[in-house]
Amino acid sequence: MSVAPPKVLLAMHVNGADVECAFSPSKTLLEVVREDLGLTGTKHGCEMGHCGACTVLVDGVPVLSCLELAVEAEGREVTTVEGLARGAEMHPVQAAFAECGAAQCGYCTPGFLMSAAALLDGADGRTLTQPEIAEALAGNLCRCTGYTKIIEAVALANGRMAEQSRG
C-alpha cells in the first residue's frame, strides 16, 4: 500500500445519533457512510458528481456525498435515507414513492428521496408547483421511471404534508 496518512478519529452526528469513526482523511462522506458506518442505503452511480445517486443531507441541505470529504462533516448533521423515517413511520415522501410506483429498480431512489425531503421539509406546508419540484430534483438522474411518477409522488407528499400542517 502506498504511504497513506494516518486515520482521523471523528465525532459525527449521523441520522440523529452521535457516532465516532476513524477513517482515512481522503475518504469521502459516501465511502464513510457506506463502508464505515454500514449505511448502504446511500448509493453511488458515478462518484464524480454526474448522477445524484449519493445525495445526502448535511445540515438539512442536499449535497453529493461522493464529493464531500467526510472530515468536513465534523460538527454537522448528516442525514441519509436510513434517517428519513421517524421511528417506524416513513417520511411522507417515502410513503408516496411506494404508493405511486416512483421507485422502479430503486437504485436512484435514496438520492431522490433526500432531494425531495429537503424540498418538502423546507416548503412549510406551501403547495409546490410542478416546475419547482422538477427544479429541486434536477440533480438526480433516473433511468427507469421517466421521472413522471417521481414528480407525482413528491406532489402527493407535498399535499399531505400541507394538509397535516393545516390540520
Binding site: 502506498s2 496518512p5 482515512s24 482523511p25 481522503s26 461522493c66 468536513e72
Partner: peptide
C-alpha cells in the same frame, strides 16, 4: 468506486 488518492487534510 472512484476514490480519491491519499492526502492529508489541513483545515484553515
Amino acid at each position: 468506486m472512484m476514490r480519491l488518492p491519499p492526502f492529508s487534510y489541513r483545515p484553515a
